[in-house]
């Protein structure tokens, strides 16, 4: 990573820190996000993703390091920066007593857009968010997916250059998630820079050109989804399931077959280059797992490898 300013970098963080009292939520991270890029922050709960997003969105002052957004300083030029950003927060902040359209209107007025402009854009955005039919309905009874889509539509009313999405699909059903991904992909193809936090690996693989994996306030890996998989995992993973409480015993003789062997309570994972060949080798050693699954390595493998399998609350 170079330190000279690149004109294309919309966000540059160097040694960025956020502390709450003695707790270091973000512990000195470096990243730069280029114009038009789709950049992801991946990490378990409490990794510091939301704190980072809030600093980039100029809603939360940083306590150490440096941060530049759109070439400006968030500490002194917050309003000017926020005028060009869109934010989709983790928790919805819609006015539930107002209608769908009124929510867009009131938000657009915060950006001082003329009502006529807001109405024109609102029509397009409601179409984009598939909410046109609910235009005059109150927000309160809408489904979670609809509220999420409305929040995204609302964040786009000012035609932001950068859209920041903090766990945009958490809590949504698969249909709603896929619809949202499609909409985000369209935005990206229109040249909007996307900054996304997620703990869904498939989401990161679908949406992000480049991502960082965060754990305990630090960045533990950085790269494209494919590069991260190549670097921190193998091409394929074999999942062997033996009888209850027989995983470790059976795994002990398999270490030479794989680059890495991981023993879980219910199965054994072999990180290998050629899964089918490995399964054949396992059988040829006289082992008979109850099931053997060969799959491609995913970001989830990278993620769990880097951040561990311990449950984080």
């Amino acid at each position: 990573m170079t330190t000279s300013p690149t004109p294309d970098a919309l966000v540059i963080a160097q040694g960025l820190e956020k502390t709450f009292g003695t707790f270091r939520a973000v512990d000195g991270i470096d990243f730069r996000i280029a114009k038009g890029e789709s950049f992801g922050f991946l990490g378990p709960n409490g990794a510091g993703k939301t704190s980072t997003m809030r600093m980039v969105a100029c809603m939360s002052p940083f306590t150490g390091g440096s941060l530049s957004v759109l070439g400006m300083n968030p500490m002194t030029e917050g309003p000017q920066i926020r005028a060009r950003l869109g934010l989709v927060p983790q928790e919805d902040t819609l006015d539930e007593e107002l209608t769908v359209l009124d929510n867009l209107l009131i938000y657009g007025r915060y950006f001082d857009l003329p009502k006529k402009v807001i109405r024109e854009r609102a029509a397009q955005l409601l179409d984009f968010a598939q909410l046109t039919e609910r235009r005059d309905d109150k927000v309160e009874p809408l489904s979670g997916g609809m509220k999420r889509r409305l929040t995204i539509a609302r964040s786009l009313i000012s035609e932001p250059e950068v859209l920041i999405l903090d766990e945009p699909t958490t809590g949504l059903d698969p249909q709603a998630r896929h619809l949202l991904w499609d909409r985000l992909y369209r935005l990206k193809s229109q040249g909007v820079t996307l900054i996304i936090t997620t703990h869904y690996m498939d989401e990161a693989e679908q949406l992000c050109d480049r991502l960082v994996v965060m754990d305990k306030g630090r960045i533990v890996a950085e790269g494209s989804p494919r590069a991260l998989i190549a670097e921190h995992s193998t091409r394929e993973v074999v999942e062997l399931r033996f009888g209850i409480d027989q995983q470790a015993e059976n795994a002990s003789g398999l270490h030479d077959l794989a680059e890495r062997v991981e023993v879980l309570p219910d199965r054994v994972l072999l990180y290998v280059h050629d899964g089918d060949a490995t399964v054949a080798a396992v059988h040829s050693r006289g082992l008979t797992p109850e099931s053997a699954l060969v799959r491609r390595s995913t970001l989830e493998d990278v993620f769990l490898h880097l951040t561990g399998r311990t449950l984080v609350d």
Binding site: P79, R82, L85, P89, E91, T93, D95, E96, Y107, F111
Partner: peptide
């Protein structure tokens, strides 16, 4: 609860 101040603070408002 409705958190609308947070929505305002994501815009140019301080």
């Amino acid at each position: 609860w409705i958190r609308s101040y947070w929505a305002m603070l994501a815009t140019p408002l301080s």
